[in-house]
Simulated scan of single mutants.
Amino acid sequence: MELRLHGGPDGPSLHRPDAAFDPWQLAWQPAAPRAGGEVVTPQAALAALAAARLLRGVPVAVIGPREASAEELAAAEAVGHGLAQAGLVLLCGGKGGAMEAACRGARRAGGLTLGLLPDEEWQGANDHVAIPLATGIGPARNAILARASVALIAVGGAYGTLSEMALAMQFNRLVLALGRAPEVLGVLRCDSPEAAVAHVARHLLGMS
């Protein structure tokens, strides 16, 4: 499906042959074909709409272990960076390890980071969380994270990550896995951070 971005006095608009994209509702609306415009990738389309402040900032969760390997930290940082480049909001558990790496990557790309903390106070967040949300409910916050995200990317992990993945599946979220993330029925495996970000972008545009 070809995506075309059109300029206009009120900012860019995204079209496909039979519809126009509503960036606030994240939904396609029937529309007559429109000539011209620039052919764009899903990530570039979302980035342009976000830059014009037209795209609603729904969060994409990145999860993984606090005791992450060097490979997992690099992958999480790349995922966070890619999500921010696509104009997407990063949601995580707000602590260290893979969560901190994802936030670091997102902030390096100018993205917005939210941390849903198990702690009772916001100061428990890592230094790269722009909006720390202290829940005070411990591991039960995993359910809120899974429900609040529109998609979830797991980078490695063990039991905590497994619970978040399973809950997200129960909530009918898109769940993607990288590296040594736990095996969960229905979760889609990606071979690189770039592939995971591309899949999320296609999902938000109703292309997967």
Rank of each mutant, 00 (worst) to 15 (best):
3 L>E: 13
6 H>G: 13
7 G>S: 13
8 G>D: 12
12 P>C: 09
13 S>E: 15
13 S>Y: 05
17 P>F: 02
25 Q>S: 11
27 A>R: 14
27 A>F: 03
29 Q>D: 11
31 A>G: 10
32 A>H: 07
34 R>T: 06
36 G>S: 12
37 G>C: 11
37 G>E: 12
38 E>M: 09
38 E>I: 08
40 V>A: 11
43 Q>I: 02
46 L>S: 13
49 L>Q: 06
52 A>T: 08
53 R>F: 09
54 L>A: 08
54 L>Q: 15
56 R>K: 13
60 V>F: 01
62 V>T: 08
62 V>A: 06
66 R>N: 10
67 E>A: 15
68 A>I: 07
69 S>R: 09
69 S>C: 04
72 E>V: 02
74 A>W: 05
75 A>F: 09
76 A>K: 07
76 A>L: 08
78 A>Q: 11
78 A>L: 02
84 A>P: 12
86 A>Q: 07
88 L>Y: 13
90 L>E: 00
93 G>L: 03
94 G>I: 00
95 K>I: 00
96 G>I: 10
99 M>D: 14
99 M>E: 13
107 R>M: 10
108 R>D: 02
110 G>D: 09
110 G>C: 11
112 L>I: 02
112 L>Y: 07
113 T>S: 08
114 L>P: 00
115 G>T: 02
116 L>Y: 03
117 L>K: 09
118 P>K: 07
121 E>A: 13
122 W>Y: 03
124 G>M: 03
125 A>S: 10
128 H>P: 00
128 H>K: 00
134 A>W: 00
135 T>Y: 05
137 I>H: 10
138 G>C: 09
139 P>N: 08
140 A>G: 01
142 N>W: 05
143 A>E: 05
144 I>F: 08
145 L>G: 05
147 R>H: 15
147 R>A: 11
148 A>Q: 12
149 S>Y: 02
156 G>K: 06
156 G>D: 04
163 S>H: 06
164 E>H: 03
169 M>D: 01
170 Q>A: 12
173 R>F: 07
173 R>Y: 04
174 L>F: 10
174 L>Q: 10
179 G>D: 09
180 R>N: 11
184 V>D: 03
185 L>A: 15
187 V>G: 11
190 C>M: 15
193 P>A: 09
195 A>H: 08
195 A>Q: 15
204 L>T: 04
205 L>K: 06
206 G>A: 09
207 M>Q: 14
207 M>A: 04
